[in-house]
Design a binder for these strands. Sequence first.
DNA 1: TAAGATTGATCGGTCAATCTTG
DNA 2: CAAGATTGACCGATCAATCTTA
Lengths: 157, 157
Amino acid sequence: MAGARWLSEQQQQAWRAFQRTQAWLNAELARDLSLHSELSYQDYVVLVALTDRPGGSMRLFELGRRLGWEKSRTSHQVKRMQGRGLLDKSACGQDRRGAYVRVTDDGRRAIESAAPSHVDAVRRLFVDRLTDEQMVALHALCEAVLPSSSNCTPGAP
Amino acid sequence: MAGARWLSEQQQQAWRAFQRTQAWLNAELARDLSLHSELSYQDYVVLVALTDRPGGSMRLFELGRRLGWEKSRTSHQVKRMQGRGLLDKSACGQDRRGAYVRVTDDGRRAIESAAPSHVDAVRRLFVDRLTDEQMVALHALCEAVLPSSSNCTPGAP
DNA sequence: TAAGATTGATCGGTCAATCTTG
DNA sequence: CAAGATTGACCGATCAATCTTA
């Protein structure tokens, strides 16, 4: 170990609690979602990102950037959802390398039917357990950790 | 949507920031670890849990409980690490259903060599970006979210 | 050459089924 | 039957390689 700088007891406990919390929350929400709908957690966030937009469509690379996903992950996920009829893809006129993804009517129905139960779960497991002050503090603290705003580049260069 | 109770703008922003933060941190730390060592993030936490113990050994179910993992996940992970010589298993005398897992010397060497760089990354990406007050607040807030202490039962019954 | 996107291999996690012992 | 543990099948994520166009 030599001259390694360890974490203080306080820091270590906070770090471990944070890790446990996020792992537990993700697992519970994923389970809850797959129990009450036909959507995985990943399906859900894709549909949220797209339905946030007026036309329900977006460039593939932009979807990946907003979710902080690698392009291959985005591609695989969209392809699977397309196969299930939740999304469709179309070519981009301006940039002929690119593609648009759009929510289908089935996709809209799926998220509209899944959302209430999922939001309930987020409330039950997360929101309702925190005070407003804690919520504000958490938000500020996350912004401090996250790289500026859109620094989602996985590899360094 | 009907009568669903949505989240306030503040709650929604905090929740999304939290999700982004944990996803980004996990990805960065996993990448950093696999870049500077032969251990995955999961290997690392298993070795931390075991080397925390005097004898470096623990019952399999206890390891799973401490990490909040399902038993099949624990079993698969331990088997893989055993195959790579990082752990070994032995029967439990008292309870003949059970098994002990123990860190091998190779396992100890692996984590001792990986730890400094990993702790540096945790500092750089997390600890150094927060004040002491934020760290304390985060810890308290995680404890509020987490079910009492050892409520890690994945399925309801 | 870089950016947008796709593909196939591989690895890790989940689920359901199974086995053994308490 | 419940608890500790294992297994195999399936799905999802990552990585490296590839293709096309800016």
